[in-house]
Structures are given as structure tokens and as C-alpha cells.
């Protein structure tokens, strides 16, 4: 059984990655499985300086999902390189650093430092931050800005693959996907969280101190599948599906729609061994479906033919 995937030159033993912000720095999950069985680990978003994130409460459980407004709390670039990366088994499993910045210069600086680290296999770029130098509009909602960020990171990435993580909170995901590809991105990951809100009818207060937050979990899987479906038609670079992956069958659904790999996010909270279980369940499921590899299955979704409406 061949579960391996070539993701923009990055050889993954299987298509199961972990989603940034849901798997810490990987080390938190070592008691629950062997990190080396994963296709890759995307670590918590990193900024140049340490960040405290948003005020509490910053999580709320919602039906089949959750909202978060953590706000990229992280120990900063230097602490990651010094304290976290050396402890990760990066020789056995690709470690993908997730970059969070609020200006093009910061993105470029993060890319330069992280790509120089032997233990960092690839970069994932989070474009959901408000662009401070452009009056606060999120990078990820402006195709021109997405392209500019991709270019800035690509220029400093030391030829390591650059994956741009796209937001679903846009009018046309295909336009954003093309903008990232035009900027030189080697791959795309989508979707980031869906902007949402929860309130308490009794206390009359929002459930998050930040009022709004990002929805994730099984509830967003249909949105993610739709976005991947549209993105793979718009670009020729590989796409990584993110959103509500909870089991091996979900992995195949994203690959069927055209993704090269997936990221497991909220499922890591549903049970801390989720990503390991999904990676180990995949070969059995593939065998059951008569698949000996993923290449031929990818994008083989059978769409209704013309004139067959009704």
C-alpha cells in the first residue's frame, strides 16, 4: 500500500498533516502516538516576537465545531528555534513552520530565519492577520496582498516549499488561489477558520471576549470541500485540504476532490490520538476501496454530466 505523497517536492509518507494551532509544537502529543507516523507536522503560528494573544474567554464549543479567538499566542521565532525545533523528530517527519506577520517585511524576515533551519522542511504562510501598514484590512481578503506576501516569503525561503494558507472568508476563493500561485507559492492549504460568533441569551454577552472568532471542526467540512473543489480547478500547484477532517474517510474525500494532502485540526482536541489514528487507518480504508495508491484517486470525483439536471 503506497500512501506517500509528493507535496511540491516534499516527500510525505502519507497525506495526514496536523493543522497549525491545533497540535501545539507537536511535543504536547508525543504521549498519544509516534509523531513519526504522521505525514507532517504544521506547528503553531509563529511571529517575530512573542505574542500573548487575545483576552479570555477565547474558545467556545458550538454544534459539531468550535470557535476560537486565541490570537496567535506564541513564544516567538527565537524561542521556537532554540527550545522547540531541536526537540522535534524532524529527521523522521517533515516539520512545517507556520508564519504569522502583519507586514511584508516581517513575513520576509520570518521566512529568512525559518527556512535557514535544517529542521524546517517547508513554510506555511498565514495571511489572516490584518495588514497594519495597509490600515488593518486582512492580507487574506485582498488578492493583490496575497500575491505580495507569497512573493515576499518566496524571495527568502531558500528554495524550501512555500504553502499559502487561504481564508474562506472571501467572495471568490479561486481568485485568491490564483493570486498565491502568481506570487510563487508552491502549494496552498485551505481553509483557515470561518468567521463566526456565539452569544449567550441569558447573560446577553458574546461567548468570546473578542466577540467574533474562527469556526472549525466537522461543521466546516462542507465549506472546506467546496473551497478545495474550486481551488484545484483554478491553479496547477498542489492543494492541501483543511477543515473538519476527523477520520480516514474524510482524508479520502478531500483527495477525491483534488487535494494532495490534508491537515487534521479540531479532531486533535476531540481525542489527542486522532491524527495518529487517521494516519494508521488510511491504508486499511484504501485497501477496502481497492486503491493501491493515492495518485490515481486524486481528483477522480465523478461530477454530473451536462444536461442531466433534475
Amino acid at each position: 500500500m503506497d500512501t506517500s505523497v509528493n507535496l511540491a517536492g516534499l516527500r510525505l509518507k502519507n497525506p495526514v498533516l496536523t493543522a497549525s494551532g491545533t497540535f501545539g509544537f507537536g511535543l504536547e502529543f508525543e504521549p498519544y502516538g509516534d509523531l513519526a507516523v504522521l505525514g507532517g507536522i504544521v506547528v503553531k503560528g509563529l511571529s517575530l516576537e512573542p505574542r500573548q494573544g487575545n483576552p479570555m474567554p477565547r474558545l467556545a464549543e458550538t454544534p459539531c465545531g468550535m470557535l476560537n479567538s486565541i490570537g496567535i499566542q506564541n513564544p516567538g521565532l527565537e524561542a521556537f528555534v532554540r527550545d522547540k525545533l531541536p526537540r522535534l523528530p524532524w529527521r523522521e517527519v517533515p516539520v512545517i513552520a507556520n508564519l504569522y506577520a502583519c507586514s511584508l517585511d516581517e513575513f520576509a524576515e520570518l521566512a529568512g530565519v525559518l527556512s535557514a533551519e535544517q529542521g524546517v522542511a517547508a513554510l506555511e504562510v498565514n495571511v489572516s492577520c490584518p495588514n497594519v501598514s495597509r490600515g488593518g484590512a486582512a492580507f487574506g481578503q485582498d488578492p493583490a496582498q496575497i500575491r505580495a506576501v507569497a512573493e515576499a516569503v518566496k524571495a527568502r525561503c531558500a528554495n524550501k516549499p512555500v504553502m499559502v494558507k487561504l481564508s474562506p472568508n472571501v467572495t471568490d476563493i479561486a481568485v485568491c488561489a490564483r493570486a498565491a500561485e502568481d506570487g510563487g507559492a508552491d502549494a496552498l492549504s485551505l481553509i483557515n477558520t470561518v468567521l463566526g460568533m456565539a452569544v449567550d441569551a441569558r447573560t446577553r454577552r458574546p461567548r468570546l471576549a473578542n466577540v467574533v472568532g474562527g469556526l472549525s471542526g466537522p461543521a466546516v467540512k462542507p465549506v472546506a470541500l467546496r473551497c478545495v473543489h474550486q481551488a484545484v480547478r483554478a491553479v496547477s500547484i498542489p492543494v492541501v485540504g483543511v477543515g473538519g477532517v476527523c477520520c480516514a474517510e474524510d482524508v479520502l474525500e478531500f483527495i477525491l476532490v483534488g487535494a494532495h494532502a490534508v491537515q487534521v485540526g479540531t479532531a486533535n482536541f476531540m481525542r489527542p490520538d486522532a491524527a495518529f489514528a487517521i494516519a494508521s487507518d488510511l491504508p486499511g480504508l484504501m485497501r477496502g476501496l481497492g486503491l493501491d495508491g493515492l495518485e490515481g484517486y486524486r481528483g477522480s470525483l465523478i461530477l454530473p454530466g451536462p444536461g442531466r439536471g433534475g
Partner: peptide, 15 residues
């Protein structure tokens, strides 16, 4: 505190 993961990853239970 309210927490999602219990293992130090979700950062929801910070004080």
C-alpha cells in the same frame, strides 16, 4: 478553566 484539549495545545485555558 474551560479547555478543549487538556494537553497544552489549544491555549484556551490560559490564566
Amino acid at each position: 478553566e474551560r479547555m478543549a484539549c487538556g494537553v497544552g495545545a489549544c491555549l484556551g485555558c490560559a490564566v
